[in-house]
Design a protein around this nucleic acid. Sequence first.
DNA 1: CCTCAGTTGAAAATGATTATCAATTTAACC
DNA 2: GGTTAAATTGATAATCATTTTCAACTGAGG
Lengths: 143, 143
Amino acid sequence: MKRSKKILFQEFIARKGLKSTRQRGTVLESFLSSDNHMSTEDLYLKVREKNPNIGYATVYRTLKLFAEAGIAREIHFGDGQTRYEHVAEGEHHDHLICTRCGAVTEFENETIERLQSEIAGQFGFVVEKHKLELYGICPKCRK
Amino acid sequence: MKRSKKILFQEFIARKGLKSTRQRGTVLESFLSSDNHMSTEDLYLKVREKNPNIGYATVYRTLKLFAEAGIAREIHFGDGQTRYEHVAEGEHHDHLICTRCGAVTEFENETIERLQSEIAGQFGFVVEKHKLELYGICPKCRK
DNA sequence: CCTCAGTTGAAAATGATTATCAATTTAACC
DNA sequence: GGTTAAATTGATAATCATTTTCAACTGAGG
Ligand SMILES: [Mn+2]
Ligand SMILES: [Mn+2]
Ligand SMILES: [Zn+2]
Ligand SMILES: [Zn+2]
Protein backbone atom coordinates (compact mmCIF):
# COMPACT_ATOMS: atom_id res chain seq x y z
CA MET A 1 0.00 0.00 0.00
CA LYS A 2 1.26 3.45 -0.82
CA ARG A 3 1.67 5.91 1.98
CA SER A 4 -0.54 8.94 1.79
CA LYS A 5 0.92 12.20 0.59
CA LYS A 6 0.51 13.64 4.06
CA ILE A 7 2.62 10.93 5.57
CA LEU A 8 5.18 11.13 2.82
CA PHE A 9 5.50 14.83 3.47
CA GLN A 10 5.83 14.30 7.21
CA GLU A 11 8.60 11.85 6.60
CA PHE A 12 10.33 14.30 4.30
CA ILE A 13 10.01 17.04 6.92
CA ALA A 14 11.51 14.82 9.58
CA ARG A 15 14.28 13.51 7.38
CA LYS A 16 15.35 17.05 6.54
CA GLY A 17 15.14 18.36 10.08
CA LEU A 18 12.40 20.78 9.09
CA LYS A 19 9.40 21.67 11.14
CA SER A 20 5.78 20.78 10.90
CA THR A 21 3.75 23.97 10.88
CA ARG A 22 0.13 24.98 10.62
CA GLN A 23 0.87 26.86 7.39
CA ARG A 24 2.45 23.87 5.72
CA GLY A 25 -0.52 21.78 6.69
CA THR A 26 -2.92 24.26 5.19
CA VAL A 27 -0.99 24.52 1.94
CA LEU A 28 -0.80 20.74 1.71
CA GLU A 29 -4.52 20.34 2.21
CA SER A 30 -5.26 22.98 -0.38
CA PHE A 31 -2.94 21.30 -2.81
CA LEU A 32 -4.30 17.81 -2.24
CA SER A 33 -7.88 18.94 -2.64
CA SER A 34 -7.20 20.97 -5.75
CA ASP A 35 -7.33 20.22 -9.44
CA ASN A 36 -4.23 19.11 -11.19
CA HIS A 37 -1.97 21.66 -12.89
CA MET A 38 -2.90 24.57 -10.66
CA SER A 39 -0.82 27.71 -10.88
CA THR A 40 0.93 29.01 -7.82
CA GLU A 41 -1.40 31.93 -7.74
CA ASP A 42 -4.48 29.74 -7.86
CA LEU A 43 -3.13 27.66 -5.02
CA TYR A 44 -2.35 30.81 -3.08
CA LEU A 45 -5.96 31.90 -3.46
CA LYS A 46 -7.21 28.53 -2.24
CA VAL A 47 -4.89 28.71 0.72
CA ARG A 48 -6.15 32.15 1.66
CA GLU A 49 -9.69 30.84 1.83
CA LYS A 50 -8.63 28.68 4.72
CA ASN A 51 -6.24 31.14 6.30
CA PRO A 52 -6.01 34.69 4.96
CA ASN A 53 -2.87 35.34 6.96
CA ILE A 54 -0.65 33.02 5.00
CA GLY A 55 1.67 34.96 2.75
CA TYR A 56 2.58 34.52 -0.87
CA ALA A 57 6.16 33.66 -0.02
CA THR A 58 5.08 30.80 2.18
CA VAL A 59 3.01 29.27 -0.57
CA TYR A 60 5.90 29.53 -3.00
CA ARG A 61 8.27 28.01 -0.50
CA THR A 62 5.95 25.22 0.47
CA LEU A 63 5.16 24.18 -3.08
CA LYS A 64 8.85 23.89 -3.73
CA LEU A 65 9.11 21.63 -0.73
CA PHE A 66 6.35 19.44 -2.14
CA ALA A 67 8.32 19.05 -5.32
CA GLU A 68 11.45 18.21 -3.36
CA ALA A 69 9.50 15.71 -1.30
CA GLY A 70 8.27 14.06 -4.46
CA ILE A 71 4.57 14.63 -3.93
CA ALA A 72 4.27 17.36 -6.56
CA ARG A 73 5.96 18.28 -9.79
CA GLU A 74 6.53 21.67 -11.33
CA ILE A 75 5.31 22.10 -14.86
CA HIS A 76 5.68 24.92 -17.33
CA PHE A 77 3.23 25.28 -20.17
CA GLY A 78 4.86 28.37 -21.54
CA ASP A 79 2.33 30.85 -20.21
CA GLY A 80 4.83 32.33 -17.81
CA GLN A 81 3.43 30.70 -14.71
CA THR A 82 4.67 27.70 -12.81
CA ARG A 83 2.06 25.05 -12.21
CA TYR A 84 2.08 22.05 -9.93
CA GLU A 85 0.72 18.62 -10.59
CA HIS A 86 0.11 15.69 -8.31
CA VAL A 87 2.67 12.94 -8.48
CA ALA A 88 1.33 9.41 -8.31
CA GLU A 89 4.28 7.25 -7.43
CA GLY A 90 5.52 5.00 -10.16
CA GLU A 91 3.38 6.78 -12.69
CA HIS A 92 4.27 9.02 -15.53
CA HIS A 93 2.29 10.84 -18.16
CA ASP A 94 2.61 13.52 -20.77
CA HIS A 95 0.29 16.36 -21.75
CA LEU A 96 -2.07 17.46 -24.46
CA ILE A 97 -2.86 21.15 -24.12
CA CYS A 98 -5.64 23.03 -25.88
CA THR A 99 -4.25 26.29 -27.18
CA ARG A 100 -7.67 27.84 -27.16
CA CYS A 101 -9.23 27.01 -23.80
CA GLY A 102 -6.16 25.76 -21.96
CA ALA A 103 -7.68 22.37 -21.12
CA VAL A 104 -5.06 19.79 -20.24
CA THR A 105 -5.40 16.09 -21.00
CA GLU A 106 -2.95 13.53 -19.72
CA PHE A 107 -1.80 10.48 -21.60
CA GLU A 108 0.88 7.86 -21.54
CA ASN A 109 2.38 5.83 -24.30
CA GLU A 110 4.84 3.08 -23.62
CA THR A 111 6.18 3.01 -27.15
CA ILE A 112 7.11 6.67 -27.13
CA GLU A 113 8.80 6.31 -23.79
CA ARG A 114 10.84 3.42 -25.09
CA LEU A 115 11.83 5.24 -28.26
CA GLN A 116 12.98 8.19 -26.22
CA SER A 117 15.56 6.26 -24.24
CA GLU A 118 16.59 4.51 -27.40
CA ILE A 119 17.25 7.78 -29.20
CA ALA A 120 19.03 9.29 -26.23
CA GLY A 121 21.15 6.16 -26.05
CA GLN A 122 22.20 6.60 -29.65
CA PHE A 123 23.70 9.95 -28.68
CA GLY A 124 25.33 8.55 -25.57
CA PHE A 125 22.93 10.40 -23.31
CA VAL A 126 21.35 9.01 -20.18
CA VAL A 127 17.86 10.48 -19.87
CA GLU A 128 16.92 11.84 -16.48
CA LYS A 129 13.57 13.28 -17.39
CA HIS A 130 11.72 14.42 -20.43
CA LYS A 131 8.97 16.73 -21.47
CA LEU A 132 6.46 15.88 -24.15
CA GLU A 133 3.67 18.32 -24.78
CA LEU A 134 1.24 18.30 -27.66
CA TYR A 135 -0.47 21.60 -28.35
CA GLY A 136 -3.62 21.75 -30.39
CA ILE A 137 -7.34 22.38 -30.43
CA CYS A 138 -9.51 20.18 -28.26
CA PRO A 139 -12.73 18.64 -29.59
CA LYS A 140 -14.93 21.06 -27.67
CA CYS A 141 -13.21 24.12 -29.05
CA ARG A 142 -13.16 22.74 -32.55
CA LYS A 143 -16.85 22.92 -33.20
CA MET B 1 15.01 26.48 -54.49
CA LYS B 2 14.24 27.98 -51.12
CA ARG B 3 14.34 31.70 -50.76
CA SER B 4 17.01 32.98 -48.42
CA LYS B 5 16.02 34.09 -44.95
CA LYS B 6 16.84 37.66 -45.87
CA ILE B 7 14.41 37.62 -48.73
CA LEU B 8 11.76 35.87 -46.70
CA PHE B 9 12.06 38.56 -44.08
CA GLN B 10 11.89 41.32 -46.67
CA GLU B 11 8.71 39.81 -48.02
CA PHE B 12 7.28 39.61 -44.52
CA ILE B 13 8.17 43.24 -43.90
CA ALA B 14 6.51 44.33 -47.11
CA ARG B 15 3.41 42.19 -46.61
CA LYS B 16 2.88 43.69 -43.16
CA GLY B 17 3.51 47.25 -44.20
CA LEU B 18 6.54 47.46 -41.94
CA LYS B 19 9.78 49.20 -42.74
CA SER B 20 13.18 47.98 -43.65
CA THR B 21 15.67 49.54 -41.27
CA ARG B 22 19.39 49.44 -40.62
CA GLN B 23 18.76 47.97 -37.15
CA ARG B 24 16.64 45.13 -38.45
CA GLY B 25 19.28 44.32 -40.99
CA THR B 26 21.96 44.18 -38.33
CA VAL B 27 19.92 41.97 -36.03
CA LEU B 28 19.13 39.64 -38.91
CA GLU B 29 22.76 39.30 -39.88
CA SER B 30 23.75 38.62 -36.31
CA PHE B 31 21.07 36.02 -35.99
CA LEU B 32 21.89 34.30 -39.26
CA SER B 33 25.57 34.11 -38.46
CA SER B 34 25.03 32.87 -34.92
CA ASP B 35 24.85 29.44 -33.36
CA ASN B 36 21.51 27.83 -32.93
CA HIS B 37 19.59 28.22 -29.66
CA MET B 38 21.09 31.57 -28.73
CA SER B 39 19.53 33.47 -25.90
CA THR B 40 18.16 36.95 -26.51
CA GLU B 41 20.94 38.36 -24.41
CA ASP B 42 23.64 36.59 -26.40
CA LEU B 43 22.12 37.86 -29.61
CA TYR B 44 21.97 41.34 -28.15
CA LEU B 45 25.70 41.18 -27.39
CA LYS B 46 26.46 40.05 -30.93
CA VAL B 47 24.36 42.87 -32.31
CA ARG B 48 26.20 45.41 -30.21
CA GLU B 49 29.50 44.31 -31.70
CA LYS B 50 28.28 45.56 -35.03
CA ASN B 51 26.39 48.56 -33.76
CA PRO B 52 26.62 49.56 -30.08
CA ASN B 53 23.77 51.99 -30.47
CA ILE B 54 21.11 49.37 -30.96
CA GLY B 55 19.01 48.99 -27.85
CA TYR B 56 17.82 45.94 -25.99
CA ALA B 57 14.20 46.63 -26.85
CA THR B 58 14.95 46.64 -30.54
CA VAL B 59 16.60 43.23 -30.34
CA TYR B 60 13.64 41.84 -28.43
CA ARG B 61 11.22 43.32 -30.91
CA THR B 62 13.12 42.18 -33.94
CA LEU B 63 13.53 38.59 -32.76
CA LYS B 64 9.80 38.42 -32.27
CA LEU B 65 9.36 39.58 -35.83
CA PHE B 66 11.66 36.79 -37.02
CA ALA B 67 9.46 34.27 -35.27
CA GLU B 68 6.36 35.81 -36.80
CA ALA B 69 8.01 35.78 -40.20
CA GLY B 70 8.78 32.11 -39.79
CA ILE B 71 12.55 32.33 -40.00
CA ALA B 72 13.13 31.75 -36.29
CA ARG B 73 11.41 29.88 -33.50
CA GLU B 74 11.30 30.68 -29.82
CA ILE B 75 12.35 27.92 -27.50
CA HIS B 76 12.27 27.60 -23.74
CA PHE B 77 14.57 25.19 -21.99
CA GLY B 78 13.36 26.12 -18.56
CA ASP B 79 16.36 28.24 -17.60
CA GLY B 80 14.26 31.38 -17.57
CA GLN B 81 15.57 32.72 -20.85
CA THR B 82 13.99 32.69 -24.27
CA ARG B 83 16.19 31.28 -26.99
CA TYR B 84 15.82 31.42 -30.74
CA GLU B 85 16.59 28.72 -33.23
CA HIS B 86 16.87 28.78 -36.98
CA VAL B 87 13.91 27.41 -38.84
CA ALA B 88 14.73 25.32 -41.87
CA GLU B 89 11.56 25.17 -43.87
CA GLY B 90 9.88 21.81 -44.01
CA GLU B 91 12.12 20.51 -41.28
CA HIS B 92 11.40 19.63 -37.71
CA HIS B 93 13.48 18.32 -34.86
CA ASP B 94 13.38 17.82 -31.13
CA HIS B 95 16.01 18.36 -28.47
CA LEU B 96 18.30 16.49 -26.14
CA ILE B 97 19.63 18.80 -23.44
CA CYS B 98 22.52 18.11 -21.08
CA THR B 99 21.51 19.16 -17.60
CA ARG B 100 25.12 19.60 -16.61
CA CYS B 101 26.78 21.58 -19.39
CA GLY B 102 23.70 22.75 -21.27
CA ALA B 103 24.77 21.25 -24.60
CA VAL B 104 21.89 20.81 -27.00
CA THR B 105 21.63 18.02 -29.53
CA GLU B 106 18.93 17.89 -32.17
CA PHE B 107 17.24 14.77 -33.42
CA GLU B 108 14.23 13.66 -35.35
CA ASN B 109 12.27 10.47 -35.21
CA GLU B 110 9.51 9.75 -37.63
CA THR B 111 7.93 7.06 -35.49
CA ILE B 112 7.53 9.35 -32.50
CA GLU B 113 6.04 12.05 -34.67
CA ARG B 114 3.53 9.62 -36.07
CA LEU B 115 2.59 8.28 -32.65
CA GLN B 116 2.00 11.79 -31.42
CA SER B 117 -0.66 12.61 -33.97
CA GLU B 118 -2.15 9.20 -33.42
CA ILE B 119 -2.48 9.78 -29.69
CA ALA B 120 -3.82 13.28 -30.12
CA GLY B 121 -6.33 11.91 -32.59
CA GLN B 122 -7.58 9.42 -30.03
CA PHE B 123 -8.51 12.35 -27.83
CA GLY B 124 -10.08 14.27 -30.68
CA PHE B 125 -7.29 16.82 -30.72
CA VAL B 126 -5.70 18.29 -33.79
CA VAL B 127 -2.03 18.89 -33.03
CA GLU B 128 -0.66 22.27 -34.04
CA LYS B 129 2.77 21.91 -32.56
CA HIS B 130 4.55 19.90 -29.98
CA LYS B 131 7.51 20.01 -27.72
CA LEU B 132 9.68 17.02 -26.97
CA GLU B 133 12.74 17.55 -24.86
CA LEU B 134 14.92 14.88 -23.33
CA TYR B 135 17.04 16.01 -20.40
CA GLY B 136 20.03 14.02 -19.28
CA ILE B 137 23.78 13.87 -19.02
CA CYS B 138 25.79 14.00 -22.22
CA PRO B 139 28.64 11.59 -22.90
CA LYS B 140 31.29 14.25 -22.25
CA CYS B 141 29.91 15.16 -18.87
CA ARG B 142 29.45 11.57 -17.88
CA LYS B 143 33.09 10.64 -17.58
C1' DC C 1 11.34 67.89 -50.52
C1' DC C 2 6.99 66.68 -47.51
C1' DT C 3 4.44 63.99 -44.84
C1' DC C 4 3.32 60.56 -41.76
C1' DA C 5 3.06 56.04 -40.18
C1' DG C 6 6.40 53.10 -38.51
C1' DT C 7 10.75 52.76 -35.69
C1' DT C 8 14.07 53.48 -32.23
C1' DG C 9 16.55 53.87 -27.66
C1' DA C 10 16.29 55.11 -22.96
C1' DA C 11 13.99 54.63 -19.18
C1' DA C 12 10.09 53.26 -16.55
C1' DA C 13 6.82 49.57 -15.84
C1' DT C 14 5.45 44.78 -15.35
C1' DG C 15 4.94 40.27 -13.52
C1' DA C 16 6.56 36.23 -11.62
C1' DT C 17 9.63 34.66 -8.38
C1' DT C 18 13.23 35.12 -4.73
C1' DA C 19 15.84 37.26 -0.98
C1' DT C 20 15.88 39.83 3.43
C1' DC C 21 15.00 40.27 8.06
C1' DA C 22 12.72 41.10 12.40
C1' DA C 23 9.24 38.76 14.88
C1' DT C 24 7.24 34.36 15.88
C1' DT C 25 6.91 29.41 16.42
C1' DT C 26 8.46 24.62 16.78
C1' DA C 27 10.68 20.77 18.95
C1' DA C 28 14.04 19.10 21.86
C1' DC C 29 15.84 19.28 26.53
C1' DC C 30 15.64 20.22 31.43
C1' DG D 1 5.77 23.71 32.24
C1' DG D 2 9.90 26.71 31.18
C1' DT D 3 14.27 27.54 28.21
C1' DT D 4 16.46 27.80 23.97
C1' DA D 5 18.35 27.39 19.49
C1' DA D 6 17.07 26.72 15.00
C1' DA D 7 13.55 26.93 11.70
C1' DT D 8 9.63 29.51 9.87
C1' DT D 9 6.79 33.23 8.63
C1' DG D 10 4.91 37.44 6.39
C1' DA D 11 5.77 41.92 4.79
C1' DT D 12 8.53 44.12 1.91
C1' DA D 13 12.30 44.98 -1.04
C1' DA D 14 14.96 43.09 -4.66
C1' DT D 15 15.70 40.37 -9.04
C1' DC D 16 15.43 39.38 -13.68
C1' DA D 17 13.59 38.83 -18.09
C1' DT D 18 10.59 41.04 -20.89
C1' DT D 19 7.34 44.76 -22.29
C1' DT D 20 5.62 49.33 -22.52
C1' DT D 21 6.01 54.31 -23.01
C1' DC D 22 7.12 58.15 -25.38
C1' DA D 23 9.63 61.81 -27.55
C1' DA D 24 12.82 62.05 -31.23
C1' DC D 25 13.92 60.11 -35.63
C1' DT D 26 13.60 57.82 -40.23
C1' DG D 27 11.95 55.19 -44.32
C1' DA D 28 9.15 55.31 -48.35
C1' DG D 29 5.56 57.05 -51.17
C1' DG D 30 3.70 61.14 -53.31
MN1 LIG E 1 -0.21 16.17 -15.63
MN1 LIG F 1 16.89 23.11 -32.29
ZN1 LIG G 1 -10.16 23.72 -25.88
ZN1 LIG H 1 27.08 17.88 -20.84
